[in-house]
Design a protein around this nucleic acid. Structure first.
Lengths: 180, 180
DNA sequence: CCCATATGAATGAAAG
DNA sequence: CTTTCATTCATATGGG
């Protein structure tokens, strides 16, 4: 895929009650969130239609600058717009593809054949990790990078961590870094 | 926006969007992805603020164990949290500076007035709380009236003049990718 | 006034 | 580490 640097920033205001942003060229919309004008949406849509899907930081800046003429806008708005637009288009499309797959999947076991790769460095998440890894000594556990050690795909939803009656006194939120 | 406002909707996994992958409505525990509790986020944020950016496997384990008291959590969650937090902190800052320039650039040619570089460490995290905390590194964080939701609804609301009387000969929406 | 929907914003997870 | 994907939260807006 094209290399597109993106990134967003979030600039917390901290305090609200700050409005007055002129969305839409002088409106009085609240500053809670960006409210694109018709013109802005048109340009963005046009760009999207032209094939732009993941604008680089540089492009985002330019677009933002241009669109700022029509009203208040920030880089992150452009970034988010493309992210959402792309994601939602795909999302919609995905819903559609479920039609014939559903019928098929439910009745047959085909669903399980989702080409599950038997990755060597499977890794688990904590205690029993060692055991598994020892069977695949590609590297010693200590040498693996975090992601490799910790990566785990299908996480099971067991509430195992704290369900066993540990009579420990509640941390009282006071432990903090004491355990490090 | 509602940071200090009423209620806390907590994480309340809701009963929706529960991807039923593999199991037909079995179980009541939602387990799509980790949904950190306010306490967990608080601790993690505290650790991050204290300077921890890339915890070692060992530390991840410890942190995970401690946080498990507040709710289900796995090591990888902690790992990802730090990765994302660090990355976003960086991107955020990068964009912010760019955004500032953008406004200026609109009217000025290309005022590359350098700006904030080498920002110490006082990241623009989010809330005004940061300032206070900085004065007390590693101490007193529990005093904060932490809102249940730690969502930093950023979006600063400063409104800069948009109606700068430029001869409104609107771009006619004809710019398109010409500026890219 | 409440509900349904569209979409901006955020972030966990993961790929590169 | 950087960039992208998927899912979710929250809010603006229009209809009933």
């Amino acid at each position: 895929m094209e290399e597109g640097m993106s990134g967003f920033y979030i600039k917390a205001a901290g305090v609200r009650g700050n409005h007055g942003g002129g969305n839409g060229g002088g409106g009085g919309t609240k500053c809670g969130r960006w409210n694109p004008t018709a013109e802005q949406v048109k340009v963005l849509t046009d760009l999207f239609r032209s094939g732009l899907r993941t604008p680089s930081t540089d492009q985002i800046q330019k677009i933002s600058t241009q669109l700022s003429f029509y009203g208040k806008i920030e880089s992150k708005n452009v970034f988010y717009w493309f992210q959402n637009h792309k994601a939602r288009e795909r999302q919609k499309r995905r819903k559609v593809s479920v039609d014939d797959q559903t019928k098929e999947a439910i009745r047959s076991e085909e669903k399980i054949s989702s080409a599950k790769h038997f990755i060597p460095h499977h890794v688990v998440e904590s205690e029993r990790v060692m055991e598994t890894l020892q069977l695949f000594p590609l590297k010693s556990f200590d040498e693996l990078a975090e992601p490799e050690k910790l990566r785990l795909h299908a996480t099971e939803c067991r509430d195992f961590a704290h369900g066993f009656g540990v009579t420990m006194d509640h941390p009282t939120l006071d432990l903090r870094l004491s355990f490090l």
